[in-house]
Design a protein around this nucleic acid. Structure first.
Ligand code: NAD
Ligand code: NAD
Lengths: 211, 211
DNA sequence: TCTCTTTTGTGATAACGTTCACAAAAAAGA
DNA sequence: TCTTTTTTGTGAACGTTATCACAAAAGAGA
């Protein structure tokens, strides 16, 4: 190996990166150009020692007795998160939840853009939500390949998510955010993350009652 | 202490409980009355050793060479998750996302019920979504107290979530699921969980590109 | 009843993550 | 320039979570 590869970033750190990034952008908007770990801690609600440890995996980003340059942190993290490149997304299942996501379309994040949607309800196909066209499921493979989309959101009912996701995977999608809780089978190279609102609420209620 | 208290259930286990519970109910619907840890592992996509360790915190729930009785597991976990008691929820911010949640209203989960919603858009107050009435923010405290609600969902824009959540907390709410990513300040006895779709997607994309 | 098979429950261990605490570096002030 | 203050970066300690691996328990079959 020619270059000394950056040490593997721990999982837990990687999961906090988008949070850090978002808050750094917020500080930048405010005109704050310098931040120390304890002030940043108040903003993101992560202990300052954790923040410093996390940052340290990317090199020595700060200066003792001074803190961190906001713009420099942004430049480092935006590289890791690859936010310069726009990630084009597809959405399957333009129902209530799906349409809410389409209307919002990560307005405040220019690195994530839903560019097309699909639904098996034929009365929806040909319509648009905002700028986003809704296609029939028959057009899915063709559109996804044409648009070179690798990431998708599924908001179809649980019962049909295996089907919808098979179709996505066969069209070349390798990362899926699934709002239906039922676990789906996918090849090893495909990543599925679940957002399960019921679980989230039950966990919240549990921790609220037991702690 | 009179009774020997059940040993503290590890955090990681508690977070998986709703997943286990949901899938056990699914098996029950299918008429499956017996399951072993390796079959259950396939269903929930959690390693069988983890499942057995998790279960073991609740006592000896299974039988060697046989597995677990689905109905018995359900009875044990439903107690811990307190699903017999209905948790009444309020929702603030009946916009696109809020209305999608109201329309769905955890249809498949009879232990979670959104019973009222609030919005500062006066044209919404007096209307209903499904059976759920939308009130103006002025009525929030009165309604939440009257209905004895302790848990709420916030789908107001980030900018206003501190305000909305202050109002909820002052009305007696102690657990909040917040869809706006900006961290809010609350008293120590109040629990706030965040669902941050942007972070979720960026993390998914990151893991997809780096693993 | 006896044997073989299945599967649990759990100590032990390894991997991962958080937090502490402080030397060293840099900034700020005198 | 010298002293004081601030704040980083990081080993080390600690705590939690995941995984292994197997004895013991129970079931199934003959
Ligand atoms: N809306 C919520 O509050 C909420 C909460 C938690 C979980 N969810 C989950 O999100 C999913 C969607 O929820 P929703 O409220 O938007 O439901 P919805 O019924 O409003 O929307 C589902 C959409 O998927 C489409 N669809 C159905 N089968 C399809 C298929 N095979 N291929 C393509 N499209 C298909 C339907 O035409 C419909 O437009 C569900 O799995 C639900 O469990 C929703
Ligand atoms: N919809 C999405 O796809 C999506 C995705 C990620 C995050 N979010 C977050 O969820 C939140 C809501 O999103 P949305 O798409 O439903 O937005 P929206 O604008 O459709 O809805 C917001 C609702 O909140 C109400 N509101 C505004 N200020 C209020 C206040 N002070 N008190 C009470 N109600 C108030 C508005 O009247 C409106 O009805 C935002 O914070 C957004 O960042 C949404």
């Amino acid at each position: 190996m020619e270059e000394t590869q950056v040490k593997k970033i721990p999982n837990a750190t990687a999961k906090r990166l988008p949070l850090y990034y978002r808050n750094l952008k917020f500080l930048e908007e405010l005109g704050t150009c310098r931040i120390n770990s304890s002030e940043f801690s108040k903003l993101v609600q992560v202990p300052s020692a954790t923040i410093r440890k996390d940052f340290s995996h990317f090199g020595e980003l700060g200066r003792s007795g001074y803190g961190y340059e906001v713009s420099y942190l942004i430049s480092v993290f935006s590289q890791t998160l690859n936010v310069k490149e726009v990630t084009k997304l597809a959405l399957v299942g333009a129902g209530n939840l799906g349409k809410a996501l389409l209307k919002n379309n990560f307005r405040r994040n220019d690195d994530l853009v839903i560019t097309c949607a699909f639904d098996n309800n034929e009365t929806l196909s040909g319509t648009t939500v905002g700028e986003i066209p809704i296609y029939s499921m028959k057009e899915l493979t063709q559109q996804i390949k044409k648009r070179k989309i690798g990431t998708a959101i599924s908001t179809v009912p649980s019962k049909y998510s295996q089907n919808a996701i098979d179709l996505l995977v066969n069209s070349g999608v390798t990362a899926i955010l699934n709002f239906a809780p039922g676990r789906v089978k996918v090849p090893k190279h495909v990543h599925v993350h679940y957002i399960d609102l019921t679980t989230e609420l039950q966990t919240l209620v549990y921790f609220n009652e037991n702690m």
